[in-house]
Amino acid sequence: MSKRKSLTGGIFIGATALSAFLIIAVIIVLLVVIILGGKGTFSWEFLTAFPTDGMMKGGIFPAIYGTALLVLIMSVAAVPFGTITAIYLTEYASEKSILAQTIRFAVRTLATVPSIIFGLFGLGFFIKFVGGGMDNFFLGGELKWGQPNILWASLTMALLTLPVVIVSVEEAIRTVPRELREASLALGATKWETIKRIVLPGSRAGIMTGTILAVSRGAGEVAPILFTGAAYYLATLPTSLSDQFMNLGYHIYIMATQSANVDQTLPIQFATTMVLLMLTFMLNLTAVIIRARLRRKAK
């Protein structure tokens, strides 16, 4: 009996160790394959040059530039909006109010919506409804805003990353000690002055973490920009909000499915994947470090 027990125990331990090992193995294999496949193509030139020869050769600069611009515009929209929402939820709404609970429910739901749905929403709402409406109203029906562009893509992405910002900023605001708020109020500051001068400066690290996590998520997602602004190939960089743009994730998808010769562009796919992975890894690492420091400070 006891032998049997120790046997099942041993099997169980073995199974858990194997599962854990498998996860690590997957990551290692993934990284090794990508690096081996991409390292021959990866170079300074690859990062800074335009694609050439019908995208069979050359670099991925427009995709890097487009991704950077996308996450920048996305942040400009998502960070202030998310921060203000977090301030409302933590400072003004009472925990039990129906409005606060509804907002929390909405934020949680938003975080679980499949990203392609955001893409479709962006197409329907931003491009057809807002953009189309703007064209009809301001331009007498001439097509300018009612088609995919970097603005609509960024705003769509901002909706997707909003929950990340809200949750991070909320967490940071909660780490600002009650004693500091009381000190400020006792000196005759209003609630808003206290938020502006004490709470928000004390939450800087959290706002930063939220921004970085949102950027890292936004840099990697493709589905939301599929219909809303990403372009297959552009000979020039976007210069206006109504321009389309190239994007790293979308570029990988294009190269792997639409390129004239998928096998021949394989090294470019690997190298692009490498760039995207490095980018998101570095962003996440920075966020983890800032967040760890924030949590330590809270204790």
């Binding site: 009381e182 000190a183 005759g188 500051a189 209003t190 004390g202």
Partner: peptide, 28 residues
């Protein structure tokens, strides 16, 4: 609260300079 000041049990300086801490009230 401007007329009735309060000093708390746990000293609660703001994460600012000494000058800015003391100037906080006058500034607001």
């Amino acid at each position: 609260r401007k007329k009735i000041g309060m000093v708390f049990q746990k000293s609660n300086p703001f994460a600012k300079s000494i000058f800015e801490n003391v100037a906080y009230g006058p500034r607001i």
